[in-house]
Design a protein around this nucleic acid. Sequence first.
DNA 1: TTGTAGGCGTTATCAT
DNA 2: ATGATAACGCCTACAA
Lengths: 337, 337
Amino acid sequence: MKSSPSTGYVTADDVATAAGVSRWTVNRAFKKDASISAAARAKVLLAAETLGYVPDLRAASLASDHSNLVAILIDDFANPHKLVMLERLTRVLRGRGWDMMLVNTLDRDDAEPALMNARRRRVDATILIGIQFDDEVLEAAHKAQHFKKLIIFARSSENKDTISISVDDRAATLEIAEYVRDRGYKTPFYLAGPRTNSAHLSRKETFLDFWAKEFGVTCDSVAVPAYDSILAADIISETLSNKPENERPDIIVCENDALALGAIDAIRHRLGLRVPDDIAVIGFDDVPQCESPNYRLTTYRQPLMDMANYLVDVLESAENSQLDKTFIGRLVVRESA
Amino acid sequence: MKSSPSTGYVTADDVATAAGVSRWTVNRAFKKDASISAAARAKVLLAAETLGYVPDLRAASLASDHSNLVAILIDDFANPHKLVMLERLTRVLRGRGWDMMLVNTLDRDDAEPALMNARRRRVDATILIGIQFDDEVLEAAHKAQHFKKLIIFARSSENKDTISISVDDRAATLEIAEYVRDRGYKTPFYLAGPRTNSAHLSRKETFLDFWAKEFGVTCDSVAVPAYDSILAADIISETLSNKPENERPDIIVCENDALALGAIDAIRHRLGLRVPDDIAVIGFDDVPQCESPNYRLTTYRQPLMDMANYLVDVLESAENSQLDKTFIGRLVVRESA
DNA sequence: TTGTAGGCGTTATCAT
DNA sequence: ATGATAACGCCTACAA
């Protein structure tokens, strides 16, 4: 038991002295399940309060080898859905006692250094959200095999060393496709996002397959190199501006809302047409803007709260394989399609 | 020097044994400025690579009492500008070797627990971004005086125990006001955000003062209880829908873009009027959507990269007072006003 | 219920 | 340039 430390922080020892107990009793006072008398706890908590003591989580983590800290690696801040995901994730994690580090994976070459960084902090899990964590990056990451848990959130992955928590893309896309068919649209156009090296069947492929089987026609599509509304607007207006009216699609099915919002802008302000009367639009994600009177976008909402809660279940699980899970969301019908 | 540890992590000792040097030499190999021979460093780095060793930052922090980790407390995820700020902040911090914890301050009562949490992690600085950190909360927080650095980002504050990094609201608002005057608008209407207990002069007050002095008239205003576009649209349409044409404002000046985008939606889709012909709109922040062909919002852009870089300067400074700084941004003129 | 050793993986500081 | 000692503040496991 020593007296005041050099660092300026109050330690358990200081509180112990003040409360007239041992340092270990002090620590017990801060644990829920600890076996400690109510009197002792009260005494300790009072002393801690007056001294301004709070336990040091670095030391706790070092000694116990779990930190209740996760790293979230994210790219693609242009997509407004990321803000929604961050809100849900931080809310649920914090509500259940977890902290998170947010890492901006600046570009694809930065993915590995970013993963390395998470390892240095000895986080309990590393969560990947974004488009640049393709199979190749994952392979390289897991070569070293030094992640307690590597979780891919809101994106499916067949990678074996990884836990994937995502919406069932196939089911979702089929629900969208059926809606498009049932509403009588005949000539859909698919607006896809950046191509990745991921092995799984993309939303676009699922949709095109469905349409081909249903009607025996291949519908057109184009890819936008980023999930960016402005870019999507540019590409849609380029693609459609010189098409005669009878070759025009009657609906644009978009891989996500970022693209869909751009598509609506282009249809109205570049092509001078109406949504949905001339061309309908359908999105994916249900970002807040979808509800704006300007867009009223029909879209597919992922059950993000459920997914985030399941993520914490995974964090708190002793297992770290066989934990993949897909979720079913729902189509939110508004006026855009 | 012990052999393989129980935790599964490779330690500096393991590398030391493998490389035939001492543990301290291993650590030196990972420091830029360390005095170590090139040969020794190469030997160590090779051994580390094959063993998969990376330094443990928890232990480093515990021993050195600085973590290169900051906590960012943020609320108001409805405002799309938050995503931009997060992008810039994470980019600059990471580029300069800092990690950040992101904490969602769920509501006002959660501010104190959230601050406590940052203390438990012994972060080098706590950064506050949001509206709920008013003077009262700051007071309570600093009563305990246990923050190495408490920084208010993108918001001015007169609190003495706090470092405020923000745009010069007064200069910005005056620039906007002069623009409004010079373009010949006569009857501006101010759309404000939630009222806070902050002591400083708000943008709204600055604008109203200017207009009163310039023309001797008080312009109308209304407050939206959250920085939320949908809500802003509702309130604008309520407020203006039953005004006769001659009492209608010719421009709506908004405290930020979230409100401004909602105002535009309301003007078009609820009031059936045109922007800017019937009513012009001006915002603040320059969120990405401003550039959309649908909005083309005239707005004021904060120099976020400069501000973020200055934030890191502050983190790396030995001082922790007299560090307040305000920045000057610029008006970005588009077609909405 | 309460106290005690020993260890977690670094760094500061001093010694060689 | 390299090695060694003593923290850093807590937790696990066990003893009293």
